[in-house]
Design a binder for these strands. Sequence first.
RNA 1: GCGCUCGUAGCUCAACGGAUAGAGCAUUUGACUACGGAUCAAAAGGUUGCAGGUUCGAAUCCUGCCGAGCGCACCA
Length: 553
Amino acid sequence: MTPAELSQAVLSAVRAVVEAGGLTVAVPDEVTVERPKNKDHGDYATNVALQLAKPAGRPPRQVAELVAARLAEVPGVAKVDIAGPGFLNITLDAAAQGGLARTVVEAGAAYGRNDAFRGLKVNLEFVSANPTGPIHIGGVRWAAVGDSLGRILRACGADVTTEYYINDAGVQISKFGASLLAAANGRPVPADGYVGEYIGEIAKRIVDAHPGVLELPEPEQLEVFRAEGLELMVAEIRRSMEEFGAHFDVWFSEKSLHESGAVGTAIERLREQGHVFDRDGAVWLRTTDFGDDKDRVLIKADGDTTYFAADAAYYLSKRDRGNEVNVYMLGADHHGYVGRLKAIAACAGDDPEHNIEVLIGQFVKMLKDGEEVRMSKRAGNIITIDDVVDWIGVDAARYSLARSSTDSTLTLDIDVLTSQSNENPVYYVQYAHARMSSVARNAAQLGIDKGAAGDFRPELLSTQWESDLLGMLGEFPRVVASAGELREPHRVARYLEQLAGTYHRFYDNCRILPRGDEEATDLTRARLWLAEATRTVIANGLGLLGVSAPERM
RNA sequence: GCGCUCGUAGCUCAACGGAUAGAGCAUUUGACUACGGAUCAAAAGGUUGCAGGUUCGAAUCCUGCCGAGCGCACCA
């Protein structure tokens, strides 16, 4: 029996009580059934009686007794206790609980998926770092979290488009080009230009590809370095992202918004909505109508459009392409954008609470020799995505970045990650998968098979460790659903750590394969079902994080 | 000054208003002639920044204060 099925059973019990006249209260749409932390509280607990007590005008324990009597009759429910202020503690019989292993194995890769977001078009924009240098650590966090969130939302049935916004228009690209030009000519980098080894490397690649470039008049040279440098840098970023396993469906050029006239069209559309006005020779969007702290300029007095105008056009583009929910993942230094982004949606006549979601990721600090590594572009000590991957590999990097909430600043100790990488929790999870794979290999070698589903005897999975493991497996669909709903991939990682721990304890206490000359028994086969189910869930979960599930380590 | 985010074990971090606040690392002590010891068992470690409030119940929600980070452009 899955938690979802049990939840339905509790609901039916409540309904039965109400229909029999035991309670006068509206039957809730859903009830929460959770795994109690304390084993004495049964396999599952529900607080439905506590919630219904007040509307029903009855003491919680009295409500609990009425529901418990009905629930105890449900097939598969072994026992229902009333505890504390009015919790219902439910114990399942072993067969009902063990049947979950078969459910999981038969669902395979589909186990954990749901259709909560069926038909919902979601756009996820993340990283979107300026193509003037390599992706640094802050961008890497979003690469890991954003890509994982995309996988999770797809598992929840959403139609997801992942997107990288390329800021390829504007002065920073010109500065980038000027920096490349200077490097190619052996001159010092201009003030507030870009420095770093990569500048010299890219400059050299451009010179190699265009042998005559340095003979051209300087303005033409600049144009070559600007355009070619941009192309090479974007290609470099794409390579890094693909190597990191972060895939973007769309690489969206800011410049294209200007060149296609989309920016002008967007301003006109906002004007038709009545939120555009002229003042001091500039064109403004009255974002203060919708909670922004000041109005924003769309077209400057000198006639140039602002970055904000492109933002508005970009948002409308996303909407025009059918995206209903548009998620922006920004660094903490951009949290000031939330108000104006929401205001764009509102000015366009959309619902800013539904059509735009902004996730703010706090900074990632790097620690080396016990001290924070102060990153500065000028000093050239930026930690890039490629650095992190070189040190600890893609799996460990993605996992360490995705396992904690983006709400809190994250501190990564380089020394720990490199020298003691075995202690990284990702290996704990992967090791469980490798162990199960090893058991499967050994079983095959012994000619043992878990057998047909019809011969599986779930009631044999009766120890505390097997019960714990089955309980954890049952939680997976809800973990995926809540991770998707809350946009919090770290919930999947934390769950996997718990699941791996539960598996390791099971493995330690419950021998799966026969030893020596012993024959395989029904218990052997039942445990193979359980191990296979666990392996499936770990593989599915790691897949949601974009982390490999190795068969050997 | 205004605003956003955060404050949990020595460290890094969990905990969708639920029962005794949990893991890992570090520290201490145990377990391999059994399926992978990258494991397991156990000990120790807390006034959840502080003070109020809301309720059957608060780390979680509200208010104030303290502390940290980051924002407050006709820049991009």
